[in-house]
Structure formats: structure tokens, C-alpha cells
Design a protein around this nucleic acid. Structure first.
Length: 542
RNA sequence: UGGGCUGUCGCCAAGCGGUAAGGCACAGGACUUUGACUCCUGCAUUCGAAGGUUCAAAUCCUUCCAGCUCAGCCA
């Protein structure tokens, strides 16, 4: 079912739909969502789910979705990523119009909010070092202890915070903390840090600030400033919801955004998570963030996945609050095939060539055949797939073997009459005869049926190309770990294509008949093709 | 005797008191000049477990069991 047929998101994520309906009381077009990436890395399929849900929900209800860079930590962020992320989201098919925002543009307002909290006696300047703070924090089943600086006067806090901003204190020497409850069972409520001192040049604000707000403070308030009604995010933030609401309430916003969490997606046999991805790349196991075996946006794009397939996959995988959900990679591939099928040109390419001489076809002659509207030359010498020949065929092998007849797609029936071998006994060439009475497309029924049809290319007219066959980089193991897949990349350096493949351009999508969907590799020179996904096959050798 | 979240087919996932949708995967079969596509067919007497309420429970109540998750001056 292609995505345009009906909006699949309407059939899942009931907890989000009902919240939206309750909160907006019919004024659904007031729905305001947001996708808030930190410009500290590239997006992957997990991020794509958040993009998908926030933008699609807005679309469904006639609302709007903001793109906000949550750039509150200059130590980790770079301008390169703010551009890359926009590129990636656009490629996924979403447009935020003029609604691009930066948390860093709210720094002055955030500062004012912090002052307001101090004035209300809800925040204090703390002199604990990072280590001391950690130690005072307690643990999962142990309450934390109050900071010795917790009871400073409002005046002193105001003075100290101003001086923090003015750069009077060294990095890390002081923090501004919320005054909540060091005994809270929710660790995020144990007097969390609001501002830290860090002399780092910010990609947007330069050196204007030496204090930066923490995510837990900036994020809800950024949402509130933008009038976000529903903040749809991953389950990893459930534990942050109380602090999200605490800041919004105590700063005093009338209109309160509501955070709703959904389960992040994970896909079997793939590596997700910035940390793991970075490791793979650093170790050279992946060829950069755009390695076609990665489910990063860049990787999937280079691999040739249609963005519509990714959206459709995400929608069909569903939106729930269940935690341990790992969708099988096969499901992703299903949607990729489904979206590729209608837009791909079918051509013949032999990945692993084996020469065939058609003994009764006139030497030096070329017959031009018309196959699906293309002109395809046919000659005495052709190549077929090495896997399509077996000297001693197993049962139900419907391809070439001594004495057996097959159809050459769009051409003639051909019967294998002999085999040539080298000194080691490897088959180097096979001999066949063809039956002129079986010519394809003549309207005349061939005198007999044949079980197999194989693809081929004319030896004289061949276009050499390279094909990259991908599989997943890792394979999930039973113990919940992942093992490296040694065969995640198979290069076919001597593939041979029919003449029309020479005209391929980057945006073209092909089905190499019986071999899968392919597209040109954007990073390579010349005719280097990525296999986007293989064709399904019910053929089981043996 | 910390908190939060979750348990419906191999994987996702509907369902919200009226007698288990759908997709993927898988298995048969039809069709086939791609062993593809398409098309049929099959695939949970049962909803983590045990009790209870009810004419009726995956849905309500009780207890139990299992899994995930949280201790950055990261986001």
C-alpha cells in the first residue's frame, strides 16, 4: 500500500491523536509541533522517525512544524551540521518554510527566565565542582544531599549570576541550579543545573556568552517561546517530562506545550546511535557517514533508497509506547522495493559473466532486437550469468546445462551443446545453438515451452561497469549483541551491461533484471552502481 | 519496600466490555519471456501468568512474573 492511498499515521499512535484532540478542542489547525535536532551530528533513520511524526502530525491536522536547532552546547556543535541537517530533512520530503529557529537566538530570553527563577527563590548559584556535584547527587536508590550553597539569598544569587554572565568566574567553577528536591525519585528533579560556565565560541552567537543553558531548561522554554502545542519526542525523554513541565510552569507561561513520547525505532541488523556509528567509521569498518550500508540519512540516500519508501516504512512500522521494538530489516527492504518498482527501468546486466558462443549464428552479424522499447543488439557471442550455468544441474535448475534449453530474454531459445574448460577444469566458455523459430516478439508461439528465461548481453556491444552488492554491516546475534558481517560488501568489478546503461545518470533507478535494483554511486567516477536492494527470490538451490 | 515505561502470531501493530484488523516474514498454489511482479490460500480457540467481577474480559479489579530504562556542568 503506497503512502498516498491513506494516511497510515491516522491508524497508529492513538495516544498522540487523542491528546491532540483533547487539548486543541477542535481547533486542530492550531497544532504546532517541532523537530529539534542538536546540530552536532548527522541524522539517521531514528531521527527520521521524529522528523516524520512531527511533520506529518502537523500536516494531518493542518498545523505547523518548526525546525529548531537546539544549539545550546557549543562544545559539540558546528555550522556544518546545521546545513547538513536541513539538507537531510528536505531530502526526506519536509519543508519548514520560514519556520527555522535556533535555541541560541533565545539566549537573552533564557537568561531573563533564569533571573525570574532566582527572584522567585527557585534557583541558586552553586559553587560545587563537577565531581562534588556528582557525589552529592545520590543514586538510584539513595537520596542526594543539598548543596551547601542552596540557601544563598536572592540578592547574592542575583549578583553571582550576573557576574557569571560577565565572565568573572572560571569555566566550571559555578553553576546555576534549580531548587527542587534532592530526594526526588526522579533524578532529573534533583536540583538540576540550569546554566554552566564555558568559554566556547558558539557557531551562532560567537563569544557573546560564556554561560550556556542546559537542554532540560532551554528545550521546554524554547518550545514555550515558539508556541509549540505538542512536543513529540522519543521515549528517552519520559523521565524529563516533570522537569520540562516544572520550568514551563515556574517561568510562568500561560500556554503550556505538552510533551508526548513515542518509542524510538530500531531496525534489526543495523547500527544506530551516534557513538556506535562514530566508532564504525573511525575503525574504517564503514566508509564515512554516507556508507550505503548505514541507515544514516546520507547512507540511505547514497544507497538509492527513495525517501518516500522511508516515510512509508516509518508509518507502517507504527507509533507506540512499547519499548523493545526492533523492526526487521526485511520490512524496510519491502518498502524500498515497492517504491522502486514503478520508477525503475529494467535493463540487462551480467554481474559475473560467462561467455556463450552460439555456433549456428552467423559470425560477424548483429541482429537488433527490440526489448521493452529498447534496441538491444544480439550476436554470435554473448555473456550470461555464471550462476545461470551448471555442468551437472541439480534438480529444478531451470537454467543452462548441457543439453538443456532456455530462453534468452527478448531473443531466442538456446540449447547448450558443449563446454570449454581451462587446464584447471574451470568452465571458460559454453557452446550453444539457437532456434530461429523461437524469436521473441514475432507473435508466433514458440513450438515448445521452456522453463527458464535468463538475461544476457552481446559480447561485442558490452558496457563494462562495476557493481557494489551490499548487505548489512552487522548481524544481530542471539545474545542480543551484534556480529560483524564479513560479506557486507561484495564488489563485482567485471560486470557487463547492455548498451543503454551507458547513458545512466545519477537520479536514474534501474532494475538489473533478476539481480535487483541499482543506481549510480554518487561518490564514484564512471559506471559504478550500488545495489539498492536485491529482488526477492523463491529459488532455493539444491 | 527507588522511579518511570512496557508485555496481543517469528518481527512490527490494531483493539479501549460483545466474542483477535493489517503489514513484514514464512508456507502452499495460480500466472509468468525477470525462480521478480501480481493474484489466491494458509499462518494467535488466543492476548505475560494466576485468580476475581460479568450473560460476556485482550479489554475492568487483584496478585504475581518478565523485560527495558534513569545517577553529563550532553542533547
Amino acid at each position: 500500500m503506497l503512502e498516498q492511498d491513506k494516511h497510515i499515521l491516522l491508524e497508529t499512535g492513538a495516544f498522540i491523536h487523542s491528546a491532540i484532540n483533547e487539548d486543541l478542542k477542535g481547533r486542530l489547525n492550531e497544532l504546532q509541533t517541532r523537530f529539534p535536532p542538536e546540530p552536532g551530528g548527522f541524522l539517521h533513520i531514528g531521527s527520521a522517525k521524529a522528523v516524520y511524526i512531527n511533520f506529518e502530525m502537523a500536516k494531518i491536522y493542518g498545523g505547523k512544524c518548526n525546525l529548531r536547532m537546539d544549539d545550546t552546547n557549543p562544545a559539540k556543535e558546528e555550522l556544518e551540521f546545521v546545513h547538513a541537517i536541513q539538507d537531510e530533512i528536505r531530502w526526506l520530503g519536509y519543508d519548514w518554510g520560514d519556520r527555522l529557529f535556533f535555541a541560541s537566538n533565545y539566549f537573552e530570553q533564557f537568561y531573563g527566565f533564569a533571573v525570574r527563577l532566582i527572584e522567585k527563590g527557585l534557583a541558586f548559584v552553586c559553587d560545587l565542582s563537577a565531581d562534588e556535584l556528582r557525589a552529592s547527587f545520590g543514586g538510584i536508590d539513595k537520596a542526594g544531599v543539598d548543596s551547601p550553597y542552596r540557601e544563598r539569598s536572592i540578592e547574592e544569587n542575583l549578583d553571582l549570576f550576573t557576574r557569571m554572565r560577565n565572565g568573572e568566574f572560571p569555566d566550571g567553577s559555578k553553576t546555576l541550579r534549580a531548587k527542587i528536591d534532592m530526594a526526588s525519585s526522579n533524578l532529573n528533579m534533583r536540583d538540576p543545573v540550569i546554566y554552566r560556565i564555558a568559554r566556547k565560541t558558539h557557531s551562532n552567537t560567537g563569544d557573546k556568552w560564556c554561560i550556556y543553558p542546559m537542554y532540560d531548561f532551554a528545550h521546554p522554554l524554547g518550545d514555550a517561546i515558539e508556541g509549540i502545542t505538542h512536543s513529540l519526542c522519543g521515549l528517552e525523554f519520559v523521565d524529563h517530562r516533570p522537569i520540562y513541565e516544572w520550568y514551563v510552569n515556574n517561568v510562568g507561561f500561560e500556554k503550556k506545550p505538552r510533551q508526548i513520547e513515542f518509542a524510538e525505532i530500531s531496525v534489526s541488523n543495523t547500527v544506530l546511535g551516534k557513538r556506535h556509528l562514530r566508532k564504525l567509521i573511525a575503525e574504517g569498518k564503514a566508509d564515512g557517514w554516507d556508507d550505503p550500508r548505514l541507515v544514516t540519512i546520507m547512507g540511505m540516500r547514497r544507497r538509492g533508497y527513495p525517501p518516500s519508501a522511508i516515510r512509508d516504512f516509518l508509518g507502517n512500522a507504527g507509533v507506540s509506547t512499547a519499548k523493545n521494538n526492533t523492526v526487521e530489516f526485511a520490512m524496510l527492504e519491502h518498502f524500498v522495493r515497492e517504491h522502486l518498482a514503478p520508477i525503475s527501468k529494467v535493463v540487462m546486466v551480467v554481474l559475473n559473466p560467462l561467455k556463450v558462443v552460439i555456433e549456428n549464428f552467423p559470425d560477424g552479424e548483429t541482429e537488433m532486437l527490440s526489448i521493452d522499447g529498447r534496441d538491444v543488439p544480439f550476436c554470435r557471442e554473448i555473456y550470461v550469468e555464471r550462476e545461470d550455468f551448471m555442468e551437472e544441474p541439480v534438480k529444478k535448475f531451470f537454467r543452462l546445462a548441457p543439453g538443456k534449453e532456455v530462453r534468452l530474454k527478448g531473443a531466442y531459445f538456446v540449447t547448450c551443446t558443449g563446454v570449454e574448460k581451462d587446464a584447471q577444469g574451470n568452465v571458460t566458455e559454453i557452446r550453444c545453438t539457437y532456434d530461429p523459430a523461437t524469436k521473441s516478439g514475432t507473435g508466433i508461439e514458440p513450438p515448445r515451452k521452456v522453463k527458464g528465461t535468463i538475461h544476457w548481453v552481446s559480447a561485442k556491444h558490452v558496457v563494462p561497469l562495476k557493481a557494489m552488492l551490499y548487505d548489512t554491516l552487522v548481524v544481530d546475534t542471539e545474545d542480543g549483541e551484534q556480529a560483524e558481517n564479513p560479506n557486507s560488501l561484495v564488489v563485482m568489478p567485471d560486470a557487463l551491461g547492455e548498451p543503454s546503461i551507458a547513458d545512466a545518470v545519477l537520479d536514474d533507478r534501474f532494475q538489473f533484471m533478476r539481480n535487483g535494483y541499482f543506481c549510480l554511486d554518487s561518490k564514484s567516477e564512471g559506471l559504478v552502481f550500488n545495489r539498492i536492494v536485491s529482488l526477492k527470490s523463491s529459488y532455493k538451490p539444491q
